[in-house]
Amino acid sequence: MSDISHTETELRRQATVGAFAAGGGYVMWGLSVMYYRQLAHVPPFEILAHRALWSLLLVAGCVWFFGRRAQLLAVLRDRRALATLCITATIIGSNWLVFIWAVNTGRILETSLGYFINPLVSVLTGVLLLGERLSRPQMVATALAVAGVAYFTLALGFVPWISLFLAVSFAGYGYLKKTLLRVEALEGLFVEVLVIAPFGIGYLVWIAGRGGSEFMRGDALTDLLLVLTGPMTTVPLLLFTYGAQRIRLTTLGLLQYLVPTTSFSIAVWVYGEPLGHGQFVTFCLIWMGLAIFTFDSWRRERELRRLPA
């Protein structure tokens, strides 16, 4: 009996630590809008190049420190995994670039809208590519999201392409990683930044030769922020991966809203981005859809947990 009690206590402890780890990773992702906003004077391509370069060096150090070299070599020998990781590297690289550009041009609200939409886009991805069926609550939630985007387009006169691109690209990235890859996060990230880094290094060398680089120009803060884009990329992912292995999917699903909620709050209360009537109605429709979607996911998981093993 004491062994069972000890096991339950340990599981609860692991779940608590996992929740804090995953939550910390999500909050770091949300706060990253403030970080990249400090680099608004640096061209987005240069920031992306530094992000890939310093991430590669840091992840390589993590692979060595955690003794993951054998697992990495196994991935590098797998041609199918490498081909898929080249595609995911292209997707996540473009996602990073659009995100950085949007933040540095004062469009943080549109990035937060994109990450609010993302869970519903992932559901649609499952329907279109995996033949999954939508429950009635999921249909209502998706319809509200579509209505929100449509209202945004009609009210403001343009399609929220930043939001849609971030949502669709991240959903596609997640789909490929979940269905076509059986690679751990650390090894997968290493290969992805390994694919992006040569282009980034080439670009950095090219702009340095033309005198257009912002790096090593005498601004120590800018240099430090560019170097720290590596940890800003890697640390949240490692925290997320650690936490995701220890908590329930419903908890993880709720925690993911910390990212857009944090960036939304920063956009409105810190940077004073205007939240007009059209944007407010759009966000309300999306939030209603997410509330229905989250409650349905929680109810379904509860039912599954009641079933006998």
Rank of each mutant, 00 (worst) to 15 (best):
G114N: 07
Y115F: 10
L120H: 00
L120C: 01
S122M: 06
V123Y: 00
V123D: 01
V123H: 01
V123A: 01
V123M: 03
L124N: 01
T125L: 12
T125M: 14
V127T: 03
V127Q: 03
V127E: 07
L130Y: 04
L130P: 03
L130R: 14
G131P: 09
G131R: 12
G131L: 07
L134M: 07
R136P: 02
P137G: 03
P137T: 02
Q138L: 06
M139Y: 03
A141C: 05
A143C: 04
A143Y: 06
A143M: 07
A145K: 02
A145T: 10
G148E: 04
A150H: 02
Y151W: 15
Y151G: 04
F152Q: 13
A155T: 08
F158S: 12
F158Y: 15
F158P: 04
V159I: 12
V159W: 13
P160L: 09
P160M: 11
P160D: 10
W161Q: 13
I162D: 07
S163E: 02
S163A: 15
L164P: 02
F165C: 05
F165V: 06
L166F: 05
L166V: 04
V168R: 08
F170W: 14
A171Y: 03
A171K: 02
G172A: 13
G174L: 11
L176W: 12
K178M: 11
T179G: 14
T179V: 13
L180H: 15
L181K: 15
L181V: 14
L181R: 15
V183S: 14
V183F: 14
V183K: 14
V183C: 14
L186M: 13
L186H: 08
E187H: 12
E187F: 12
E187M: 12
V191I: 08
E192N: 06
L194P: 01
L194C: 10
V195I: 14
P198W: 01
P198Q: 10
F199G: 00
G200R: 00
I201N: 00
G202Y: 01
L204T: 00
L204H: 04
L204D: 01
V205L: 15
W206K: 00
I207E: 10
I207T: 06
G209P: 00
G209R: 03
R210G: 10
R210C: 03
G211D: 07
G211A: 04
S213G: 07
E214F: 14
F215I: 11
F215P: 04
M216Y: 11
R217V: 11
R217G: 11
R217S: 08
G218T: 09
D219S: 09
L221E: 13
D223N: 15
L224P: 09
L225R: 10
L225I: 07
V227N: 09
V227E: 10
L228Y: 03
T229M: 09
T229L: 09
T229D: 05
P231N: 07
T233M: 11
T233C: 07
T233P: 06
T234K: 02
T234A: 10
